[in-house]
Amino acid sequence: MTAALLAGMTPARLDAIAPERLPALLRLMPKAELHIHIEGSLEPELIFRLAQRNGVTLPYADVEALRAAYAFTDLQSFLDIYYAGASVLLKEQDFFDMAWAYLEKAAADNVVHAEIFFDPQTHTARGVPFETVIKGLNHAVHRAHAELGVSAKLILCFLRHLSEEEAFATLEEALPWRHHFIGVGLDSSEVGHPPSKFERVFARCRELGLHIVAHAGEEGPPAYIVEALDLLQSERIDHGVRSLEDPALVARLAAARTPLTVCPLSNVKLCVFDDLTQHNIGALLDAGLCAMVNSDDPAYFGGYMNQNFVELFAAQPQLTARHAYQLALNSFEASFVDADQKRVWQHRLDAVFAAG
């Protein structure tokens, strides 16, 4: 890695940590999750419970049949099932139950902070009021802080397969609830829907003082990352694994410390990489990029945060304690919290590795 270690652990101390200690450290170390779609944390068991509670008929006989359908060939094949699963979310309690289930898992994985994506258009298109969505999610966020010790914030995402006009309408509907979310993002089908399609609505979001993030460079080309930076002024790039195809872009991302919220198990499940041994997160770190590990849509992609870390490091023995430490540190650096809070988490991270 060329990125400097910014906290108290020196490279020599990290190199002294025995490889067999890594799996435990990966689980124990505090971390932030900055790329989690809350609708993508909806487990099949909860989908069926909510369907029964709300009288929704699903096109699957049972939990096993639904889970067996999770054989995706690309992003779109996943999204088709993702939107079907979301159909059971109708009431404020449903959104609370979904978010609370995720936040309990996050706490168990030593996630100290989560910046959670939600897709209001997925729900408002079905007649579910924006107010129902945001109030259920916000209730879970506040309860998690009080009862689980997990800090969490919400980021509203626009669906890029829909029009910019529809994104503007969603933004207007959201404005009365502006204090419940900290930023906006761009997700859904990437290919054929470049960031430039949403330039005007993101300009309006910046005027409102919202943080800006955008999915780019997962299935889409490096040019989409450039558009997200230049036209949307995105503060983070969600995914960004294809950035290595453009050396000038890599140099730019490294110089600016632009965060890349990488999702290893997701990338394999959606056939971006054949398997975890082929994943390029180590190369991203070695190029000096501010990459970190996230779970994306964990109910569909086979693992929450710790599962992503443990499976990635098991598949790539060249990844060491230095990489693990840097990934966690990067997640704090990239979060939308103040410097004092970042230092608190950094000290906790140091303590875990010092004991390792």
Rank of each mutant, 00 (worst) to 15 (best):
M1L: 13
A3T: 07
A7R: 11
A7K: 12
G8W: 04
G8K: 04
P11R: 05
R13N: 12
L14H: 01
L14F: 02
P23V: 11
P23N: 12
A24K: 10
A24G: 11
L28E: 10
I36T: 12
E39L: 00
G40V: 04
E43I: 11
P44W: 01
P44N: 01
P44C: 03
L46W: 02
G55M: 08
L58F: 01
L66D: 13
L66I: 11
A68E: 13
A71C: 15
F72N: 14
L79G: 02
I81N: 03
Q93C: 02
D94C: 13
W100K: 04
A101P: 04
A101W: 03
A125Y: 05
V128M: 00
V128K: 00
P129T: 00
E131H: 09
T132V: 05
V133M: 01
I134H: 02
L137F: 07
A146Q: 15
E147Q: 14
G149K: 06
K153Y: 04
S163E: 10
E165G: 11
R178I: 10
R178S: 10
I182T: 08
D187H: 08
E190H: 09
G192Q: 08
G192C: 09
P195V: 10
R200G: 13
R204C: 06
C205S: 10
C205N: 04
H211R: 14
I212S: 03
E227G: 05
L229G: 01
L231R: 13
D246P: 04
A251Y: 03
R252C: 01
A255M: 07
A256G: 10
L260C: 06
C263W: 03
N267C: 10
C271I: 02
D275S: 12
H279F: 13
N280W: 08
C290E: 07
G302V: 05
M305G: 14
M305T: 14
A314S: 14
P317T: 03
Q318T: 15
A328R: 04
N330W: 01
N330L: 05
N330C: 06
F332V: 02
D338A: 15
D340V: 09
V344Y: 12
W345K: 09
W345M: 08
R348D: 05
A351I: 03
G356D: 00
G356R: 00
